[in-house]
Write a protein that binds this DNA or RNA. Structure first.
Lengths: 335, 335
DNA sequence: CTGAAAGCGCTTACAG
DNA sequence: CTGAAAGCGCTTACAG
């Protein structure tokens, strides 16, 4: 491995001077600059990041902590974050917190601390942000937090208005009895969506709303719709708390030979690609997930490079994507 | 941050001695060992990995390179690898190579080189393994390689016999005209599956096989089945080169109101969870993907710790998982 | 503008 | 069994 010393020797200067051009910092004469640049190219020299890290207390790496990488929401997010990370000269550590107890996650965070990880993207509820803040002064970007966090950057989607849009859409196609299967209420996301649903159903004469607790999984969608149908056989619209629930609902309705959307229309939330592989394809409120990943990495690196630690909260818009599960005519035309 | 020097001072010994107990290496008297251990606990000291890395030329981190983390095959793999990695005290760098030109990937690999990454898990065809071997002497585990690689560990699934099992299964339920939509032939996986299909269809009197090129995507499944039906309206079985193709096929058959499996039975390959969210659920040859991820990380770390660099090739069995898309009776009973 | 020196926090021969 | 010293490959005041 060629070192800064080798370069210095060949260029006839001191390592310090080479370091200066490497870091683009401090004075270096035109003349030496040119020759050093040339030698660096010739030797194809790349500074050892570990050594550099030791003095700079930085590793040029970010950590992304997700609940479960096999959940399409998180893998999409990871893809976006990874792209920008790599593009800006960093690398991305992946941490899967799912199912682990907070204690273990704390251990892992501690472990990372000793590696001079430059910043964290937190996309999981398995870590207590307050604890995090107390223990780590590293830059962090928190996704889908339930509130702004002092000195950190939070990024979320406007779940409240997204939910309103979903509900209004179901109403607009004529649904009269709409059930919302909502996610766990410790999750800000789930809470906001439920709130949006409630708001939209208020003062809707002729239509009524039912709220049913679920847990953001396909299985939960299947079980919820079974229960709902027992109690309310006249439901004609489902607003699922997320796409996985919607997928479960669609699956079970298919099994029961209940026609979607003729008998029951279904709308999800998230915009994961799975909503396009079911039959029928599922209408959903699409979050810009990939973009959130990119943005998270971009903001994080900005914060690192500029020692920027103001409180910052970014809210992205979700948008309604209409597909077969709520378009009666589309299905009609196929028949 | 507390350093080894702080510990040494408090314990009344030299940093060298503390280092010895930290690394469990060299002689340390019982007496000092006990007190040093105590102080380490008290101060909650954890050695700085970067400093340690600089001297040991190691970073206690592995890199996982995948084609596309949003592909469920890879995210499942990543999950398994991440679990073991973390469990054994390492961390996992994620690299998404998809769509990038090899040159850019080479750059990225170079970048990682300077971080003392201890080993690589390569699960992508976007990197030329020969080039890799020439440039990096790091331990590596290669997944789904087309052949054994000297001094490295390769892990793959027995695609050939898996394909035979899939085909025999379709034959066993009475399919007479089976089409295999195969993946790109530069991919060893695709090649082996096609070979298995050919072998099984040989000497099958009363049944005939059709081979049709696809590309391992949902879209490809949709397009392939359209074309196939034009030319061969009497097809009654599809063996898809992978699950994504199978999902596309199922989707299109649903749209065309062609009954699965009564009119056409469908079998996929891979065992990704998506095969369980379609209607009907899809019969597939299940690869132990999660386990492959675990195994890859486990072998890699073993190689790192034991300087083990023998050629090693591991082949895992795939197993047939029968679901609705090939079980005529199950569907019958529902009607 | 440039180089010698000290330092980042650890580990590893080496001498005792 | 233990400590002083050198070294891993950089960067950063500091002096000139």
């Amino acid at each position: 491995m060629t070192t800064i010393r080798d370069v210095a020797k060949l260029a006839g200067v001191s390592p310090a001077t080479v370091s200066r051009v490497l870091n683009n910092k401090g004075y270096v004469s035109e003349e030496k600059l040119k020759i050093i640049d040339k030698v660096i190219k010739e030797m194809n020299f790349q500074p050892n990041q570990v050594a550099r890290g030791l003095t700079k207390k930085s590793s040029k790496t970010l950590a992304l902590l997700v609940t479960d990488i096999t959940n399409p929401f998180f893998s999409e997010l990871a893809k976006g974050a990874e792209k920008i990370t790599q593009q800006l000269g960093y690398s991305l550590l992946l941490g899967n917190t799912g199912g682990n107890n907070p204690e273990k996650n704390a251990d892992y965070m501690n472990f990372l601390k000793n590696k001079y990880i430059d910043g964290f993207i937190i996309a999981t509820h398995d870590i207590d942000v307050e604890v995090l803040k107390k223990n780590y002064k590293s830059p962090m970007v928190i996704l889908e937090a339930d509130k702004d966090i002092e000195n950190l950057c939070t990024i979320k989607v406007d779940n409240y208005h997204g939910a309103i849009e979903a509900t209004k859409h179901l109403l607009s196609i004529g649904c009269q009895k709409i059930a919302h299967i909502y996610g766990p209420q410790y999750d800000a996301t789930a809470k906001d969506r439920l709130r949006g649903f409630k708001t939209s159903m208020k003062h809707q004469e002729g239509s009524s709303g039912i709220e049913y607790p679920g847990d953001f999984s396909i299985m939960s969608g299947i079980e919820s719709i079974q229960e709902l149908l027992k109690k309310h056989s006249d439901i004609d619209g489902i607003f699922a708390g997320n796409d996985l629930i919607a997928i479960g609902v669609v699956k079970e309705l298919n099994r029961l030979k209940i026609k979607i959307p003729e008998q029951i229309a279904v709308c999800g939330f998230d915009g994961i690609t799975l909503t396009q592989i079911t039959s029928p394809e599922i209408t959903t409120i699409e979050q810009p997930i990939y973009k959130m990943g990119e943005l998270a990495a971009e903001r994080l690196i900005y914060r690192i490079n500029h020692s920027f630690n103001e409180t910052e909260s970014i809210e992205l818009k979700a948008k309604l994507v209409i597909r077969e599960s709520t378009v009666k005519s589309a299905i009609d035309s196929k028949q």
